[in-house]
Design a binder for these strands. Structure first.
Length: 173
DNA sequence: CATTCGATCGGG
DNA sequence: CCGATCGAATGA
């Protein structure tokens, strides 16, 4: 039985449910020379809703964050600190801003490093994650994984309450 | 228009 | 610990 490719419906639900299901899944990428690589997702962060002070969406819809307000299963890719591309996958229904940041793969630590490794840049923003776009997700083989929840990284600006919420999900290996 | 500031990383 | 590096956000 081959792995199942994750569809829009997988992402169109509560962001924290998606996070629990997404950790341990595979991020798949087909390079320009048609070689397929698959990586285990080991660290992610949830940015959900209108109240989350650490989320780009907190101050409302802008040109940059508009993808977060769109339908689920889209890539939200933005430039951070002038040099690093951050890869997110959107969750929830149209109109509700939410996304999950991919922070690490078992084979590559760091949100900026993994986009460089997979050759992902701003051109991928708002793309649907599917095989046609050479980037997609696949279900994990085992039903259960060990995960730990901890505070998100680099969001001190959001204040003590929001910066300390355990919205970072790490694969416990 | 000027200035500030990042959902980070690599080098010293 | 600090500089890189640049677009979005903010304020004059």
């Amino acid at each position: 039985m081959s792995a199942e490719s994750l569809k829009e419906a997988f992402f169109e639900r509560d962001s924290f449910e998606v996070a629990e299901a997404l950790i341990g899944c595979r991020l798949c990428r087909k390079s320009s020379d048609q070689v397929i690589s698959k990586y285990t997702i080991s660290e992610i962060e949830v940015y959900d809703g209108f109240e989350d002070r650490a989320s780009h969406a907190f101050k409302g819809k802008t040109k940059r964050n508009s993808v977060m307000f769109g339908p689920a299963g889209r890539l939200y890719v933005y430039l951070c600190y002038g040099k690093h591309w951050m890869l997110n996958i959107t969750t929830q229904r149209y109109g509700y801003p939410a996304a999950i940041l991919i922070r690490a793969l078992s084979e590559c630590e760091g949100p900026g490093r993994l986009t460089k490794r997979l050759s992902i840049d701003g051109g991928f923003n708002d793309l649907v994650a599917n095989k046609n776009n050479s980037i997609w997700f696949e279900n994990r083989a085992s039903q259960t994984v060990q995960l730990k929840k901890m505070p998100r990284v680099g969001v001190a600006y959001s204040g003590p309450v929001w910066s300390q919420k355990p919205f970072r999900y790490c694969l416990d290996s």
